[in-house]
Amino acid sequence: MATPGRIIVGSNKGSGGGGVALVAAVLVVLAGAGGAGGAALNSGAGGAGGVAPVTSVGVLKWDAKRSARGGDTEGAMRHLGVRIDKQALKQEPDCLENSFGEVRNFFARNPCTALDRLLLAVGDGAGNASVVSVAWVTFPGRNQARQFDRVIGSHGSGDVRPLSTALTGMAEVSFTAAHYWSEIRDTTIAIAEAEPAAGSVDPELLDALAEVAAQLPRP
């Protein structure tokens, strides 16, 4: 199914639940003020009548993915028309205690070597906000990473618990895996999920947020 190197694997995982992670020593920082809200959704100087053409999220995400792969998280979000308001990061080695369901059972048989979790609170400046979770799970070998991808990508298989959205000062949001993307890089798999937090957020944007976030390199 997979070949060595960078492999993109999309999945309609469905509702796998989220839950609130027990967290300690979490870094919560205010993100830079980069980004211009939803302005990135419009491009060009406009034609007759001065109306600028609207670029679809599907087109914008390719530039966003390029920025994400280069480690430019703020630039990646800016390409999608949102900015990072706050973020939280936690790095630890214990995958078993931060997972549930079949995913946890897999860790019991195949311990990970590292777990890094990131939570982004993003908004468009117009009251519409989302939260994006990324978990990077590292295994001793590529085969275990590929096997794990098949497990976590299955409907109802459980999850690696995202960090609590309360860490960014937001009301608690449950992750359902309705907007989910995973990607394998060598022995590490990135698992990204996105959920609306306030206002009205286009489901296509939520899908793009998860897909783009999965491109980010492990911290």
Rank of each mutant, 00 (worst) to 15 (best):
V103F: 01
S200C: 05
V137G: 03
V51Y: 10
A64H: 05
I191A: 08
P162H: 01
V201E: 09
P4Y: 11
M170H: 12
A129L: 02
Q144S: 13
G70Q: 15
V28F: 07
E183G: 08
K86L: 07
G158E: 00
C112T: 00
V201W: 04
L118S: 05
L118E: 04
A114I: 05
F139Q: 04
G17Y: 12
I184T: 11
V122T: 10
A190I: 01
G71T: 01
S133Q: 03
G18I: 04
V57N: 01
D85V: 13
A114P: 02
F100N: 07
T168M: 11
T188N: 07
L41N: 11
N128P: 06
D124V: 08
S15I: 12
A88V: 06
T176E: 12
N110K: 10
N12K: 15
D94H: 10
W62Y: 14
F175L: 04
D94M: 08
D159A: 13
L115I: 04
A68G: 06
Q87S: 12
A48Q: 12
L206G: 02
A33G: 15
V28R: 05
R161M: 11
L22F: 15
R117H: 04
T73Q: 08
E172R: 13
N98V: 06
M1R: 06
G38K: 08
W181F: 12
I84Y: 07
V20D: 13
R185Y: 02
D207Q: 13
L163Y: 00
R104P: 05
N143T: 11
D159T: 09
A108G: 08
W181A: 15
E172W: 11
K61N: 04
G101L: 04
V54T: 14
S174V: 15
A25D: 14
